[in-house]
Amino acid sequence: MSAHIDTHGAHDEESHGSRKGYLIGFGLAVVLTVIPFWLVMTLPLSTQATALLIMAFAAVQMVVHMIYFLHMNRRAEGGWSIMALLFTLVIVGIALSGSLWVMYHMNSNMMPTQQVQDQG
């Protein structure tokens, strides 16, 4: 650690992370990337199980990246970073699930030919 010139460096030190932190994050990210690709390329499980598993792996990998690469924690910027993140996640959740839900029902209710095929 060299002498710092900046006046407000107190929180900077911590937010850079450490070599160990980056390597742990990278190791986890590689494992969490390789397994879904392997699952889809070789298909050892049913399609449904594979889909659920790779979504779970993606969610976990996003959290790993947030913690080890983006250095997200409850204390960063006095807690405002995590508040902004949580707010965004709520909006993203509403927008994504709402769009998919509404459009799925629109599709299934407004395409009579497909509906007849589905029922028959």
Binding site: H16, G17, S18, R19, Y22, L23, G25, F26, A29, V30, T33, H65, F69
Partner: peptide, 12 residues
């Protein structure tokens, strides 16, 4: 992914 870890090393 590799570019992410190398950027981390740049920050260190």
């Amino acid at each position: 992914l590799l570019s992410s870890i190398t950027y981390g090393f740049a920050m260190l």
